[in-house]
Computed example of a mutant assay.
Amino acid sequence: MRRVTGTWAADFLHWGNQPASTDEDAQIATKGVTKFCKPSPDTIEWPVTDIVHDWRAGAENHGLALQSPDEAAGDGLWTFGSYDSENHPIPQLVVTMDVASAPAVRGVNIGPSYREGDSVWLKGSPSAMYALINDPAGGRMTAEFQIEHDPAVPGQGTGLIWTATSSQTSANGKPLVRIPAGIVQDGWKIRWRARAHNVTAGTVSDWSAWGHGTVATDVPEITAHEVFPSYQYEGRTMSIGLTPDLRATVTHPFADSMWVEFQMEYDPEQPRQGTGLIWESVDEDVPSGEQAVVTIPEGLVDGGLWVQWRVRASGGPFQSEWSDWQKLILDF
């Protein structure tokens, strides 16, 4: 087994254009395999540790060449399985190495949360933290988590609020811990971090960079329900046509855009016309302070139908309750 020193292409390789190879660190296998002795076929191994070290030291890796130590000698025909063999195992290069343990944290998340640019808001009392960790040496790992008061706001408190260590996971796992309810308060600014422990190797990573966020309980506000076009008749809203817009204004103190849901159902005051949900729709990515708008599809309803409709908005995990039902009679 020799180290190839020249380039080659499998699709164009033949006996006359074989790449150069070197006998430096070449290995000779002397195991005899013949169809007259069992087991046959059998495997042959060549220790190529020195060749792999050559590659690691900078020698170009053009692969390995398998040839007789003396190609002028008539020592018969040897047949080996190749990478596209159908009846025999394909060749394998097995490399065993010692890898130093180096646990690392690739990311830390806390939630539920909402991010807008560089700002993070945590919904009420955050419920969980998890980290993305790894170690090239493998082994069983845990993650250690900390939540602290933000030192930029000492009036809210200082130092550690809570800490916990996850259960064990794999070297490329995502350990998670549950955060007890009530440990932080609305309006607090907090920070969090994590570090990885390789329990098998007894090694520990550096702490991750601090993450920063604000605890908030704000939910979207829904105002100015409107049907367009419509008019008022004897205290009720009457649509002009059967495909009016349903509109509502949504606002939130820090969520720049929202997901707004609409539902329309039969008016329970007129049960003979029907009961339950008729239609629902969503207006996505509605800027805070703007109108969310959906249009009742053509052919969905008949004139004279009494309905009621409502709205709910979400900015990340911050979700409003459903608004009050709005009464509507669709155009005759």
Rank of each mutant, 00 (worst) to 15 (best):
T142I: 01
F145P: 02
Q146A: 13
S127E: 12
V108N: 05
G117L: 02
S127W: 02
F145H: 03
G111Y: 08
P126K: 06
T142M: 04
Y130S: 14
M129I: 07
L132N: 13
A102V: 11
E144K: 05
V105A: 09
D118L: 04
Q92G: 14
S119V: 11
V108D: 07
G117A: 03
A100R: 10
L132K: 02
D118C: 01
A102S: 14
G139D: 04
V95P: 09
F145G: 08
A104C: 09
M129S: 11
G107Q: 07
N109P: 06
I110Y: 03
V120Q: 09
E116P: 04
S125M: 01
Q146G: 06
A102P: 11
I133S: 09
V108M: 05
A143G: 11
Q92K: 14
A128W: 13
V94D: 14
L132A: 12
S125E: 06
R106E: 13
D135N: 12
P136M: 00
M97T: 13
D98A: 14
E116T: 10
A137V: 03
D118T: 12
L122D: 07
D135V: 00
S125V: 02
G138Q: 05
L93S: 13
R115S: 15
Q146E: 15
P103I: 01
N109V: 12
P103C: 06
V108S: 10
T142D: 11
D135R: 03
A102Q: 11
D135T: 08
S127N: 07
M97C: 13
D135W: 00
G111I: 04
R115K: 14
G124L: 02
I110P: 08
A143L: 02
Y130R: 08
P112R: 07
S113G: 15
K123A: 15
Y130G: 14
P126A: 11
L122R: 04
S119E: 14
V105M: 05
R115M: 10
P136E: 02
S119W: 04
I110G: 09
V99N: 09
P126Q: 05
R140C: 01
A104N: 13
V120L: 09
F145I: 00
V105W: 02
P126C: 07
R140W: 03
L93H: 12
P103R: 01
A143C: 06
P126S: 10
L132M: 04
S113P: 08
E144H: 12
R115G: 13
Y114P: 03
Q146W: 07
R106D: 15
R115Q: 15
M141I: 00
V94R: 15
L122G: 10
V99I: 15
Q146C: 05
E116L: 04
